[in-house]
Each structure stands twice: as structure tokens, then as C-alpha cells.
Simulated scan of single mutants.
Amino acid sequence: MIVFGAKQIRRIWHDDQWFFSVVDIIGALTDSENPRDYWYRMKQREKESSGIELSTLCRQLKLVSSDGKAYPTEAASTEAAFRIIQSIPSPKAEPFKRWLAEVGYQRVQEIENPELAQQRMRKLYQDKGYPDDWVEKRVRGIAVRDELTSEWQKRGIQDQKDFAILTGEISKATFGLTPADYKKLKGLKRENLRDHMTDLELIFTMLGEAATTEIARNKNAQGLLKNKLAAKAGGSVAGNARRQLEAKSGRKVITRDNYLIDKPKRKLPPKSE
């Protein structure tokens, strides 16, 4: 559950994203004594006014009720929940509507001037307490990643599963860990792995991906198999550089450290390779 004001909103992790109980959202953003009836009437009103069936935005997922049992409940993803909130004629919903309008306006600005997106990204990380030097590496890493994925798309890689496979190949060759294993090492669950990397981890991630882009381009790799070979080769460039640094510095690059504010940072115990 999450809490909005004094109201609890049930949620469930499904298909790699959060889904929220629509009835609970209605109860939190209106003064209705019967949120289910309010939701029913709101769907009718929206259908009559715009022709949109709000129920099509929802999924029937089992959520635990007040009696401790799980029942099929209309639940909406974050995107769908925001759309539903736009149809709630309640003063409590106005702050959300204004925020959505502001975000939409910012997105239009970023399309006209892409530099604004990077500026806002930097500020977002800075507001979360990340050091400025780290932020610059993270922003640069995003640009390197974007260049790589664009190159993959040109070479016939379209499916998200294939993107994950290739990313895994680079990570294994660079760090000896898949992204899933790396997240487990750092004690992460749904958090973004790269948001919890140290400066050096980010640098070697960038090197592996930049090298993969260069190799795929120069070798004219086409299709998944050829790009897997390029990914392994690119990751090996970064992996070899990582091992050389570790040998010279006497310190491991791979670390359990993370930026989770509610957990103490942990050091990776020494180990031989």
C-alpha cells in the first residue's frame, strides 16, 4: 500500500510496473462516501461526454481487501491512473491535473530545445543528493547508451528482449555479472542499477557500451547473433581495462555500495580472480 493523505491506496507489481486500485484513488481524491458508485457513474459520464471507456484503461488484478482476502479489482498503471484522474471533477484532483499540464508543457519545451531535457535531468539528480561529478558521468552515460541503442536499431534489433540480451553480454564481459546479478549484489530490487553505480562503475559501463557501438559500426554487425559478438567484444575492452586498473590500484571496481538512503553502504570484501 501507499498512503495519500489519510487514505491508503492498494497497489500490485505486475508486468514490470505498478498498478493501483482505481476505487482507492477515487476515495483519496474525492469526498465520496461510496467510491465504487462514484467510479461507476464517472465511467458513464466520461463515455457520454467523450466516448472513452475508462474501464479499458484498467486491468482486473487481485488485491487484498479489508477482510484479508484477495479479490479481482480494477487497477490502473501509473499512466492510466493519471488519465483517470483527469476525469475526476474534484478540487482534490486539481493539483495532479496542474502537475500533468506542467509536465506536458515541459515535454513540448524539450522537443523544441533538447538541451532543456539534460538540464532538468541534472537538476533531478542533484535534488536527490548526488554529487555533481557523478551527475555529469551519469548524464554522459545516458548519451552513450542512447547512441548504442540507436545503432542497434539500425542493425535490426527492435525487440526489448534482444536489447536486454545484448546489454547482459556487455555487462558480463565488463564486470563478470549480468545486470540482474549486479542489482542483487548491490541489494537493489526495482531501482535503476546505474543510479546506484560508483563513478568508476559508470566509467567502465560507458567504455563497454561505447566500444560496442564502435565495433558494431565498423564490423557492420547485422542481427542478434552478430551484435552479440560485438557486445562481447566491446564489453571485453572494458573488462580488460577494469582488471588492469584493479591490478595497478589494488582495489576492486565492482562494489556493493549503493545510494539507497535507508541502508548503510557496504564494501565488497576482497576476493581473488
Rank of each mutant, 00 (worst) to 15 (best):
69 K>Y: 14
116 L>E: 09
34 N>A: 10
143 A>Q: 12
50 S>M: 01
119 Q>Y: 13
154 K>S: 14
69 K>T: 15
227 N>S: 05
257 D>E: 15
250 G>M: 04
235 G>P: 05
117 A>W: 08
260 L>V: 07
163 F>N: 09
139 V>H: 01
242 R>Q: 07
166 L>K: 01
31 D>S: 14
123 K>V: 12
103 V>H: 09
249 S>G: 06
104 G>T: 12
55 S>W: 06
79 E>K: 07
201 E>A: 08
145 R>N: 11
1 M>V: 15
207 L>M: 14
192 N>E: 14
176 G>A: 05
201 E>C: 06
182 Y>T: 03
130 Y>T: 05
77 S>R: 01
147 E>D: 13
195 D>W: 03
129 G>N: 09
38 Y>V: 02
212 T>D: 03
271 K>A: 15
28 A>P: 03
253 V>T: 10
47 K>I: 02
243 R>H: 12
120 R>D: 09
101 A>C: 08
33 E>I: 11
210 A>Q: 08
9 I>S: 02
14 H>L: 05
68 G>W: 09
109 Q>S: 10
249 S>E: 11
132 D>Q: 12
182 Y>R: 01
38 Y>Q: 05
55 S>L: 11
195 D>I: 03
73 T>A: 04
136 E>H: 07
247 A>P: 04
89 P>E: 06
85 I>Q: 00
64 V>W: 08
33 E>P: 04
141 G>L: 01
31 D>N: 15
67 D>E: 08
174 T>V: 06
193 L>C: 04
249 S>A: 15
236 S>D: 13
71 Y>M: 07
162 D>P: 04
103 V>I: 13
109 Q>P: 02
66 S>G: 04
192 N>F: 12
44 Q>W: 03
119 Q>I: 15
233 A>T: 11
167 T>E: 09
252 K>C: 08
94 E>L: 14
147 E>K: 09
233 A>S: 13
47 K>E: 12
111 I>S: 10
195 D>Y: 02
45 R>E: 05
30 T>I: 02
245 L>H: 11
249 S>I: 10
213 T>H: 03
66 S>R: 09
58 C>Y: 02
207 L>V: 14
39 W>A: 01
8 Q>N: 15
94 E>Y: 08
4 F>Y: 15
188 L>G: 02
62 K>H: 14
128 K>W: 14
143 A>R: 11
256 R>A: 14
172 K>P: 06
98 R>P: 00
200 L>Y: 10
203 I>R: 09
76 A>I: 01
155 R>V: 10
22 V>D: 00
92 K>T: 10
86 Q>G: 07
131 P>F: 09
